[in-house]
Write a protein that binds this DNA or RNA. Structure first.
Lengths: 211, 211
DNA sequence: GTCTATAGATTGATAGAC
DNA sequence: GTCTATCAATCTATAGAC
């Protein structure tokens, strides 16, 4: 971490600490101390604590959104080429897989995914507004594609089911960071890929369920 | 609110503000100001800010746990009487319905449910430890009953699916408080009962899906 | 039980030397 | 760009009068 420039080290430290302790429970002093930077460096490079949060989120969310958009567009193009409706499951895969796979992009990426998962149900307006503005276009594209895949479902019902899907997904993302609530002494928990596959199976079954 | 005693007014105000703004983003001054009480009253009645949080959670979570336990026990007893395994869907209903129905228990109850939903993926140890200790026995009973309903599923797979279920449920609980992310301009969103029924349908389909 | 007053620590932000 | 030093505000918690 210490051979990178100060701005990057602060971003990395903020990402880690915001994800682990929450935005309001993390002080600039803790961040700069972990980043081995001076306290004043945060305001010099970013302007404020809130602007640092925005920078932390944007750094990885913009590429992730791009990736999800490409995958969804590919599914839509494939469907258009064959003259059929896209399948709900392939759209879900296009949306979920890049998100969960993102955790392997690096050590900080896993913290980031946990931060994003938590932001979906964030009470605080600071975090919430920052996050929602960035993901909304992506979520809309996803939702409208699903409407084409499942035209028989009333909009309100589809919206509810998408909400359940995002909830299940964000919960997995939150807990990818730390041990989940230890409900049962399972002999061998699933690894990341199996968990992603199980999630896809779970939500696509629920989404396509008859009314 | 103002004809109740001070202790209750502080509990109500804390419940509302912790749910709306988060624990660390809520100050004792904001709480006592809303409760029309003196700043020192919190430490007099509860001892500390953290002890107030514990009191806020315990006040409603203990009765809710009791309610869920009774419902699950009733399903198990019914199954034992007929000599069959309990159905996954009836267990899910026993667990989910009291939780969501709790929102109608009063104006503060809805805030409380949002607080609980968020606590399931809480980054902060203060909130997380307090919450987990209280719900763990209840969650274990739920999980072990499900194992009897779905014995063909490997433990690790069932655990993953229960995790998805809790995620979907907690997301609904979080957003029962405030408008959800406005993904689509839906003509008429579902009301609370329809949403609960849709959730039950969604998670029971996913939980019972073939491997 | 309720109040005022304040201790004691921590916070985000900034001014100014280098 | 990086540093020291510090300001002004805020926080939880408590002591002590009533």
């Amino acid at each position: 971490m210490s051979q990178l420039d100060t701005k990057t080290r602060i971003l990395d430290a903020g990402e880690h600490l915001f994800a682990r302790d929450g935005f309001h429970n993390t002080s600039l002093r803790t961040i700069t101390s972990l980043a081995k930077a001076n306290l004043a460096a945060v305001n010099y490079h970013f302007g404020s604590k809130e602007a640092l949060l925005r920078a932390v989120i944007e750094r990885r969310l913009l590429p992730l959104n791009q990736l999800r958009k490409e995958q969804i567009d590919a599914v839509l193009a494939e469907a258009a080429a064959t003259g059929t409706a896209p399948s709900a499951k392939s759209l879900l895969r296009a949306f979920i897989e890049p998100t969960l796979a993102f955790r392997s992009a690096g050590p900080g990426a896993q913290d980031f995914i946990a931060l994003v998962g938590r932001s979906m149900s964030e009470p605080d307006e600071t975090v919430r507004n920052c996050f929602i503005g960035l993901v909304l276009p992506n979520f809309r594209l996803f939702f409208e594609s699903l409407q084409r895949a499942l035209p028989q479902l009333p909009t309100a019902v589809l919206m509810a089911r998408v909400q359940f899907t995002l909830g299940a997904m964000s919960h997995v993302m939150c807990t990818s960071n730390k041990p989940p609530i230890n409900i049962s002494a399972a002999p061998q928990p699933l690894d990341d890929d199996e968990l992603a596959e199980q999630l896809l199976q779970f939500v696509s079954t629920g989404l396509e369920a008859p009314q």
